[in-house]
Amino acid sequence: MADSYNQSSSAYKRMIMTHSIIRFIVCVLLSVICLLPIIIILMNGTRSSASIIANGFSIVPGNALSDNWAKLTDPDKGPFSAVYNVWLGYRNSLFISLAATGVAVLFSGLTAYGLTVYHFKLRNFATTFILAVLMIPTQVVSAGFLDFMIKIGWVDNYLPLILPAIASPSTVFFMLQYMRSSFPLDIVEAARIDGSGEVRTFVQIALPILKPAFAVQAIFMFVGNWNNYYTPSIILLSNKLEQRTMSMMIQSVVANDKNIDYGVQYLAIGMSVLPVIIIYLILSKFIVKGIALGAVKG
C-alpha cells in the first residue's frame, strides 16, 4: 500500500473507502451471529413451548409471556417456584458477583503493581509462582476445596464464594502484562520525588492509568461469577432457596426433565441475561472511550 504522498488524493480515498466498506460488512455479519442468540432467547421467552418445538427460533415475539411467567413463579401454576425466584436470584448473584469482582480486581491490581514496581528478593519467585498456579486445572483443586470447606464449616455461606477471589492468578497475570506494555515506571519515581507515599501513589496515580485494564477484567469477572454454576452448587450444599444464585436457579429450570417447558426455560435464561447485558453496556463505556489518559507526556 503506497503512502498518501505518492498517490492522487481521490484514488487514495477510494482505496480507504473500499477497505472500510469491506471491514464494515464483515463486522456486521459477525454482529449478527453474536446478537442473534440473545434476541432468540428473549423472544423465545415469550412463546409457548409447543410453538418452540414446532418452530425452533423466531425473531418475533410470541404472546405467551404472561403464561410463561406465571408458570415460572406462581406455585399454583408451575412446579418451579420451589427452586426459582427472580428477586432472590438477582439479589444473591449481584451480591456475590459484585463482591468477588471488586476484591479480585482490586487485589490483583495491588499484587501486579507490587510485582512490577518494586524490587525485592522473592520477586521472581513470586511471579513464577503465580504463573504456575495459573496452570493448575480447576478440577485439581475443586474437590479438595469442597472438603476443606466442609471441614471448617464454611458451607452454605457466601464466604468461600467471595474470599478466594482475592487471589485470582489470571487477573494478576493480565495486569502484569498490561503494566509491562503500558505502564510508565517513571511515574512512580516522579511521584516519590513529589513526596507522595507509596499507597497514595498507587491509588491516585496508578489506578487511573490502569482503568481500562480494570474495566476489562471487571466485566469478565462479573460475568464469570454471575454464570458460575459449579462452585456455588457445591458450596451451597443445602440448596436453600434464599441462598441460591441465578445460575443455580436456571440450571434447575432447564435440567428439570419432568416439566420440559421450553418457553419457561428461555424466559428463565432471559431473565438472567438481561441484567448482565445492562451492566455490561454501562461498563463498556470505559473501554470504548479508553484512551490512555495518564500517559507520561513530554
Binding site: F107, L110, G114, V133, A143, F145, A167
Partner: peptide
C-alpha cells in the same frame, strides 16, 4: 522493597489458605 511484600501479601495469604491443601490433597 517492603512495600513489594506488603502489596502481594493478601494474594499469597488467601491463596495459601484456600488452595494449597486441596492441591496437596490431590
Amino acid at each position: 522493597a517492603k512495600y513489594g511484600y506488603m502489596f502481594i501479601l493478601p494474594f499469597f495469604l488467601v491463596y495459601g489458605f484456600f488452595m494449597i491443601w486441596p492441591f496437596i490433597n490431590t
